[in-house]
């Protein structure tokens, strides 16, 4: 799926981001760029500043200093809703879906299709069921029944539905927070394939993790953070899994 925008600017450019919480400096002048149609791994140990950086990008916190550009335009988010309106979607491990509701009702939550019978609004479950099934099929996810409760699905299936939903509703940037950390090997492979499908459809993906092995198969670029500073950004083939692991822990400087 081609995009018509001018791609001389990256999709995301964060410049000299500083974030202080009281006397603690969580991020100290971090630059971070994500290209169009790129799977970008954001790596670092606990406390390295990964989630702070992402929370700034998604409008949860304002940065103390620094600027954010999205599609080449300077943006300032005052809430996650602002970021979402521009097409930045975050999929959190456990917070994405309502387990007690069906796949379809989750898929269309907040964007329900409503039909009118005279003056009476009526949820068009049939249309929503059909669209859920076809939208998920489009990115390679087969579901048994759209009316099935999400709580009865496996962790990987749940991730896939959250990803499919973001893709279907026009996300440009998909942020996945530790999407594979609780999954089996087979399920991890599936989730990685959905990420590649999302990329093939023109999206960029930020993949936050501390597990190098998972991301090595799909990442085009890696940015490694340590103690609130950027260690560097590297491209596919530049580093071995071993090199990355050493850079995360700081056993080797580059």
């Amino acid at each position: 799926m081609g995009r018509t925008q001018d791609h001389s600017e990256p999709l995301v450019r964060m410049e000299a981001i500083v974030k202080r919480f009281g006397t603690i400096t969580a991020l100290d002048g971090v630059d971070f760029e994500v290209e169009y149609q790129q799977v970008h791994a954001l790596l670092g140990d606990n406390g390295a500043g990964k989630s702070t950086l992402i929370k700034i990008l998604t409008g949860v916190y304002p940065p103390t200093e620094g600027r954010i550009y999205f599609e080449g335009r300077h943006v300032r988010f005052s809430s996650p809703r602002d970021a979402r309106a521009l097409g930045i979607e975050t999929v959190y491990q456990d917070l994405a879906l309502v387990d007690t509701m069906s796949i379809t009702r989750n898929f269309f939550l907040g964007r329900e299709i409503v039909r009118r019978l005279g003056p009476i609004p009526w949820l068009d479950m049939r249309a929503m069921n059909e669209r859920t099934r076809s939208a998920l099929r489009d990115i390679g996810i087969e579901i048994r029944a759209p009316h099935e409760k999400v709580g009865s699905l496996s962790g990987g299936e749940r991730q896939s539905i959250a990803i499919g939903r973001a893709v279907h509703f026009g996300a440009k940037l998909l942020i996945l927070d530790e999407p594979t950390s609780a999954l089996s090997v087979a399920e991890t492979r599936k989730v990685l394939s959905y990420i590649e499908n999302a990329k093939a459809r023109g999206l960029s993906v930020i993949f936050i993790t501390h597990n190098v092995r998972h991301v090595h198969m799909v990442a085009d670029a890696y940015t490694i953070l340590r103690h609130g500073r950027k260690v560097g950004t590297y491209y596919r083939g530049e580093l071995s899994e071993r090199d990355i692991a050493d850079l995360i822990t700081g056993e080797r400087e580059r």
Partner: peptide, 13 residues
């Protein structure tokens, strides 16, 4: 209705 959907969602997660 959308409202009902949101009631289930508010209580579910």
């Amino acid at each position: 209705t959308t409202f009902g959907n949101h009631i289930f969602a508010a209580g579910g997660n």
